[in-house]
Amino acid sequence: MAEKRRPEKVLVRRHSALTRITHWLNVLAISMLLMSGLQIFNAHPALYWGSASSFDQPWISMSMKEVADTPRGVTTLGPLTFDTTGLFGWSGAPGMQEKRGFPAWATIPSYRSLADGRRWHFFFAWFFVINGLVYLAWGLIGGHIRKDLWPTRDQLSPRHLLHEIATHARLKFPKGEEARRYNALQKLAYLAVILVLLPLMLLTGLTMSPGFDATVPQLLDLFGGRQSARSIHFISASLIVAFVVLHLVMVVVSGLWNNIRSMITGRYAIEVEGDEA
């Protein structure tokens, strides 16, 4: 009679020291960049397409409008108009409400100061770029991107992808040997952020520089003008926020402490069949 195998937990090396350090430095940089970026956005809380601003036709805008002598926060998105009092356009503690795009709790500094917001933003932009270059250089040379992040052929088969989507939707995650590597959805999400969204932030940011534009006007053609670059900068930042939210949800539902430990100590617990351990 076969003995029943008991699953056993073993700690495997999950993240290298460099991945862990650059991950946490990136958390710091992205938080600062996001919040100081919203401060900068608040100086003119409206976005346009093309080279110049068509002031009466932003594709998204936040403003204050008086409705029956009461100030309301109004957000427009294309032809749609939303009352966003307390969040976008008009917000603040009772008696201290003010006209502003994003609320005080979302910006650095919390009060309105474009000059200070720019100081924070450009400082952490350097921080972000240097940290990102270190990560990418090591990821390319050391093989981290090819070995750990690039999906394998079997992972990319439609059958496998559909299976992963179905199991993710039921919050069931790979166990045992399969848990030794990232799953395909994880890999694709990480690659999209690392190789598309984050570089896009840098490039659209540089396209907004009138000085840089004169030397590299191709950037203007690539993004369709300075105001388009500003819009793409904002959309890309929003997608990064969406990724972070999803990332945090996945960290929680797929084993909070195990995930956090792996990003701090590098060790990740997986369950393997008893006699293999």
Binding site: R119, W120, F122, F123, A125, W126, S209, P210, G211, F212, D213, A214, T215, V216, P217, L220
Partner: peptide, 24 residues
């Protein structure tokens, strides 16, 4: 300290951009 990055930005921009280039 934050403002020190400004000097870096200015010097980096001076380094990589052509100061005679025309604006579009």
């Amino acid at each position: 300290t934050l403002a020190s990055a400004e000097g870096l930005t200015r010097r980096a921009q001076r380094l990589v951009t052509d100061r005679k280039a025309l604006a579009r």
